[in-house]
């Protein structure tokens, strides 16, 4: 890639070492080791309850891990609030249920973090927000409230909102699972375009295998709290190694 001229490019963007997490007695993440390079695109798949959402939610500390190390862009996540805030300033997140703020307009949703977290002047924040709204192809909705938009439009606003903080990492937590079928494509298109046009590091939990094929550098399969298998999309889909991976792929690709 031509854009691979980054400063300390050998240091991983995200590093997870022996990460463990329990919900009560339930061992939700077991010895997770994962190193994500700068600009890498990763798709995580696996059956429900396999811990994939929990894992990416640990990366911006919406969930706390109980053992192991998580380092994001050189900052280790601990109980130190300043470190957590530092990591969150550089990590954008898109949720399954959009989680837009219903009492704010689309534009206000987008400018909130730039104005309050990054202290950007309002006019500049609004100009940036409009730029991203154009990128997700809904600039005309800027002054509407989220409740007036369709699910697909809301998710595109949510992607624009995450991009407005100019993140180094974008986390997508099943971004299309809550959408009506006819709206899945418009959201995936935006995500593919984002992958093509920027060099942001992307980690995406999704079952959209077409998306994984066209965008991912690496596909990770998780089951029962463990990373079972990881490979390039071509190898992953054509020559799955593990029995559980084969079973999972046969189930989701069957129809």
């Amino acid at each position: 890639m031509a854009t691979a001229v980054q400063q300390p490019s050998d240091e991983p963007m995200i590093l997870l070492e022996k990460v463990n997490k329990w919900y009560g007695d339930f061992h939700v993440l077991t010895d997770i080791d994962l190193s994500v390079k700068r600009g890498e695109r990763i798709v995580i798949c696996g059956p429900s309850g396999s811990g994939k959402s929990t894992m990416i939610r640990c990366i911006n500390r919406l969930e706390e891990h109980q053992a192991g190390r998580i380092v994001v862009d050189g900052v280790e996540l601990t109980n130190d609030v300043r470190k957590v805030e530092a990591v969150r300033r550089d990590v954008g997140m898109v949720f399954q249920h959009f989680n837009l703020f219903p009492h704010l307009t689309v534009l206000q949703n987008l400018t909130l973090a730039p104005i309050w977290v990054r202290k950007t002047p309002k006019a500049e924040a609004e100009a940036t927000a409009m730029k991203y709204l154009e990128r997700v192809r809904i600039p005309e909705q800027a002054h509407k409230y989220p409740g007036q938009l369709s699910g697909g439009q809301q998710q595109r606003v949510a992607i624009a909102r995450a991009l407005c903080i100019n993140p180094k990492v974008m986390l997508f937590d099943e971004p299309t699972s809550a959408l009506d079928p006819e709206m899945v494509a418009e959201v995936l298109d935006v995500m593919i375009k984002l992958a093509d046009e920027s060099n942001v590091t992307m980690i995406c939990v999704t079952h959209e295998m077409g998306f994984a094929r066209s965008v991912a550098d690496r596909v990770i399969f998780m089951d029962r709290g463990q990373i079972v298998e990881q490979n390039t999309p071509e190898e992953f889909f054509s020559h799955p190694q593990n029995e559980r991976t084969k079973l999972f792929l046969s189930q989701i690709l069957a129809h």
Binding site: F101, W116, A162
Partner: peptide
Amino acid sequence: SKGQYEAADALGLTYWQ
């Protein structure tokens, strides 16, 4: 909903913000 708290956290807002 919990999602409102999470979205605010994920954007890096402080507790009082």
